[in-house]
């Protein structure tokens, strides 16, 4: 990373990530992950799959999330994925992925487009049933879907039984945090 003189802010506006515990759940703003979208160019899906496999980047099927350190990814739309990588090593996420896919895929930096709030703890289904239509109780681990939460478009990624990421638009980070916090107070 270049040694420039500008200091970043977290999506919620702090200099360090926000964190709050309400009843059995904890909300944590996650900022140490770089994101890039990878979309296969027309007719080049096989090449993209092969390049990803060689580089150890998972490209899961529809509605799925998959982690394979240091990468992880979830499905966005047909032939399109959001790839996660550690921010410390992959800050310029597009530049990091270009050599992998060459011109077989369109790659777009997405790190700062999103706020990721991880919700961890027991009783997550009881919380999420007040938030969105995702059936968290029966969703398998690794389920990833986009839906609406309090009028906001979000990705909901079930990383484990007790860890769900809610990934929403960065500009409405405060509104999303407020929605999660209010629901948690209401439920627990």
């Amino acid at each position: 990373m270049a040694e420039h003189r500008l200091k970043p802010l977290c999506p919620l506006g702090g200099t360090s990530p926000a964190r709050a515990s309400i009843g059995p759940v904890t909300l944590t703003e996650v900022v140490d992950v770089a994101l890039a979208s990878v979309s296969a160019r027309l007719g080049r899906t096989a090449e993209v799959a092969a390049s990803a496999a060689a580089a150890g980047i998972p490209l899961p099927g529809p509605g799925r999330f998959e982690a394979r350190a240091p990468f992880a990814a979830f499905w966005l739309s047909p032939e399109s994925w959001m790839v996660e990588a550690p921010f410390a090593t992959h800050e310029d996420s597009r530049a990091a992925l270009l050599p992998v896919f060459g011109d077989a895929a369109s790659i777009t930096e997405q790190t700062d487009a999103w706020v990721r709030i991880d919700v961890t703890g027991e009783g997550l289904p009881a919380l999420f049933e007040r938030l969105c239509n995702v059936d968290l109780a029966t969703a398998p681990e690794g389920a990833a879907t986009r839906t609406i939460l309090e009028h906001m478009g979000v990705y909901v990624v079930k990383r484990g039984a007790a860890q769900v990421s809610v990934i929403g638009a960065r500009s409405s980070a405060a509104a999303l945090w407020h929605a999660l916090e209010t629901a948690a107070h209401s439920v627990f």
Binding site: T108, E109, A169, S171
Partner: peptide, 8 residues
């Protein structure tokens, strides 16, 4: 291929 970068 299209993707929004308004927020990025």
């Amino acid at each position: 291929q299209l993707i929004s970068t308004t927020e990025a």
